[in-house]
Amino acid sequence: MESQNRKDRVEDWIQDVLRYRIEDKDKKRVLARCADIEAYGQEKNDSRLLGFAFFYQGEAYYAENKIEEMFSCIAKAVGYLNQSGQWELLARAYNLMAITLISKGNAPVALDYYLAGLRCCKEHGITGIVCSININVGFLYMQNRVYREAQRYFEDAYAVWCETKNARVRSLIMIYTNLATCYMLCGDLEKTEEYIEKIEKECEPEFTEMDYTYVECMKARYFHRAGKKELRDESISRIEKMIGGQIRVLDLFDDLYALCELAIEIERYDVLFDIIDRLEPIVVQAKMDYMEKNCFR
Rank of each mutant, 00 (worst) to 15 (best):
I236G: 08
K241I: 09
P205E: 11
K229N: 00
K229D: 13
G244S: 07
K228F: 09
C203N: 11
E200N: 08
R232A: 01
I236E: 03
I243K: 02
S235F: 04
P205A: 13
C217I: 04
S235H: 11
C217N: 10
E202N: 12
E230N: 11
R238G: 09
M242E: 14
M210R: 13
F223E: 07
M218N: 10
G245S: 14
D211G: 02
T208I: 03
G244T: 02
P205F: 15
A220Y: 02
V249I: 10
F207S: 06
K229E: 12
F223H: 10
D211V: 09
C217K: 06
R225E: 15
H224C: 06
A226N: 15
E230A: 06
G227C: 10
E200F: 09
R238T: 11
A220M: 10
R248G: 03
I239Y: 14
H224A: 05
M218P: 00
G227I: 14
R238E: 10
G245I: 11
K201Q: 12
I239M: 04
E200C: 05
C217E: 01
E200M: 04
K229G: 00
H224P: 02
E209Q: 07
K201H: 11
V249S: 02
F207W: 05
K241W: 02
K241G: 06
S237V: 02
R238Q: 11
S235W: 05
Y214C: 00
G245N: 12
Q246M: 07
E200I: 05
S235T: 12
G244W: 04
R221V: 06
R238D: 12
R225H: 13
E240Y: 04
K201E: 15
Y222R: 14
I247D: 02
V249G: 04
E240K: 07
T213G: 03
E206A: 13
E230L: 06
E230Q: 05
M242A: 15
T208Y: 09
K241Q: 13
G227S: 06
E230V: 06
Y214W: 05
Y214Q: 01
E206C: 09
I236D: 03
H224D: 06
M218G: 04
K241H: 09
I239G: 06
S237M: 03
G227Y: 13
K241E: 07
S235L: 11
R232L: 12
V215W: 15
D211N: 12
Y222V: 06
E230I: 10
T213E: 03
M210F: 07
E202W: 12
K201G: 07
K228T: 02
M210E: 11
P205S: 14
Y212H: 12
R221M: 03
Q246G: 01
K228G: 01
V249C: 04
E202F: 13
R225S: 04
I236S: 09
E202T: 12
K201T: 13
D211S: 05
